[in-house]
Design a protein around this nucleic acid. Structure first.
Lengths: 239, 239
DNA sequence: TTGCCAATTAAGTCCGTACTTTATTTTTTA
DNA sequence: TAAAAAATAAAGTACGGACTTAATTGGCAA
C-alpha cells in the first residue's frame, strides 16, 4: 500500500486545498515553479495534476494556468456503455417513424418551460419506435430541436434511429453532455393509442436534454415507453 | 484539427486492429520494441496506449504485456455525480427506517432468481424512506444482503441512509460496480400502504445490484418510489 | 509430480531537457 | 480610441535514459 511519488504529491496538494492553504478558485503556481518548490520533476507533478483533474479538483488551460475548481475529489463513476444510443436507452436496431413535424414558438410547450431557442422557435418531431418486425410500437416520442438545427427537416424522410444522429450527420455537431430524467407516469391518451395501451396505464417517461461541447442545447426530448417491453438499464463502475 | 503524434499513433494502432493485422486477444510487442519499430519514444507510445486503454481497446498488466481486448473504441460516458448515493438515486438527507428483517434461503425470493449466496441464505431488510420532516414515505425498499454480510443485522438499529454504507463501515468492503434497472410498474399492495398510494398507481421501481472490487455480489435491492415525489436524474458527459 | 525460489521480462515510475501551441497581455498602428 | 500585431507565459507534446515493481516462467528440491 505504499504510494508512489506522484500519488503522494496528489495527496499533498489536496491536503493544502482542504486545509484552506489554497482556496477553490485560486490559480496554482506554474508547473515549472511548483515542481521546483516541491523538489520533483515537472513530469511527476503533471502525473499528480492528471489525477486531480480526473477527480474534478483541478482544471488546466494553456497559458491561463491550473485552477482549483473543487475541494472534494469525486470518485468517478463511469457508465459502461458502447455509445450515446445506450446512454439514451435506445436499442441497437430501432428506427424512429416520424408521424408529424411542425414548428413551435418559445413558451408554447410545457416541456420547454424556461428554455429559449436562439431563433425563438423549435422544430417539433413526433414519432414512434417499433422493435424490428413487431407491429405495435413500444415507444412514443416528441423531440424538440432548436431553431439552429431546424434545417434537418427534409432529412427526416429517410430512415434513421435518432434525431441527434441526423443532426450529427448534417451539421457535424456532436453531443457532449446528456441530462436525463426518468419518471413513472400514467400514460397520456395519444401515446396510449400509438402503443396499444390504455390511457392511465403506468409507463416510463424519459426526458432528455442534449448539449454540445459548448454546453449549448441541441435538443429536448420526451420519450414514453411501454414498461412491459422496455426498461432502463445502467451499469456503472467506480473509476 | 491536426493531430498530435501520440494521437496519430493511437489511430495507427487502432487501424491495424481493425484491418485484422492485429487480432483481439493478441499481445502487442513490448513497449520498448514497438516504440523502436514506430520510430517514436516510449513515452509517446505510452500516451497512445493511455488513450486506447481509456477507450477500452487495450489492457495493460505488468510483466504480462499489453493485450487487445476490443476492436471498437468506446467513447466513454461519465456520470456527473458526487458519489454512490447519487448513482443509486438516493437523496442527501434521507434515512432508511427498517420495519422488518428476516433470513431467507436461496430460491425463495423471485428477485434473487438465479443468484446464489455463499452461505445459501440472505438477510432481507424491509424499510421505508421519508423526506426529512414529512409524514408519509416516498420510498419502500427491500434489500437482500448476501450471507457473508449478514452480520450487519445488529447495526441496523442505528440511523443510516443505506445498507451498503453500513456494510462499508462494518466490513470495509466498498462498492465497485452497480447495475441498476428502472421500471414503471403498478404499485403493489404493501408498498402502496407504506407510501399512502393506491394499489395499481404508476410507480418507479429501481432494481439494483451492488458488486465489490472482485465483482462479487454484495446486495440486491428493489426500491419503489412515489413518482410525484421522486425521479431518477442522470447527467452524463462524454469523456 | 508438487511446491517453492530465483531469474526474467514488461509495464510503471521518475528525471531532465527541448520544443510547440495557444490564450493573454502589451505594444503598435490606423 | 480601437483594432491589429507582437511578445509572453503557461500548459502541452516529445525525447531518452535510469531505475522499480510485479507477474510469469523455469529450475530445483522435497
Amino acid at each position: 500500500m505504499t504510494l508512489t511519488l506522484h500519488e503522494r504529491v496528489e495527496d499533498d496538494i489536496l491536503d493544502r486545498i482542504q486545509t484552506g492553504d489554497w482556496q477553490v478558485g485560486d490559480r496554482l503556481p506554474p508547473e515549472k515553479d511548483l515542481a521546483a518548490q516541491l523538489g520533483i520533476s515537472r513530469s511527476t507533478l503533471r502525473l499528480a495534476f492528471d489525477g486531480l483533474e480526473r477527480k474534478g479538483v483541478l482544471q488546466r488551460k494553456k497559458r491561463a494556468g491550473t485552477h482549483i475548481i473543487s475541494n472534494s475529489p469525486q470518485s468517478r463513476f463511469q457508465m459502461v456503455t458502447s455509445g450515446l444510443r445506450e446512454v439514451l436507452s435506445l436499442g441497437r436496431d430501432t428506427f424512429l417513424d416520424v408521424s408529424q413535424t411542425r414548428v413551435v414558438a418559445d413558451g408554447e410547450i410545457d416541456l420547454l418551460e424556461g428554455l429559449k431557442s436562439e431563433t425563438g422557435h423549435w422544430l417539433e418531431i413526433t414519432g414512434t419506435r417499433k422493435i424490428d418486425g413487431k407491429e405495435t410500437a413500444f415507444n412514443w416520442s416528441q423531440i424538440y430541436v432548436t431553431g439552429r438545427y431546424a434545417g434537418i427537416e427534409p432529412a427526416l424522410g429517410d430512415a434513421f434511429s435518432s434525431v441527434f444522429q441526423v443532426i450529427e450527420k448534417a451539421f457535424g455537431t456532436s453531443v457532449a453532455r446528456v441530462n436525463q430524467s426518468v419518471l413513472a407516469i400514467a400514460c397520456p391518451k395519444e401515446a396510449a393509442a400509438a402503443m396499444g395501451l390504455r390511457q392511465g396505464d403506468p409507463v416510463l417517461q424519459i426526458l432528455a436534454r442534449l448539449h454540445d461541447a459548448d454546453d449549448r442545447l441541441i435538443e429536448v426530448s420526451s420519450a414514453i415507453f411501454d414498461p412491459a417491453r422496455f426498461q432502463v438499464n445502467t451499469d456503472v463502475r467506480v473509476d
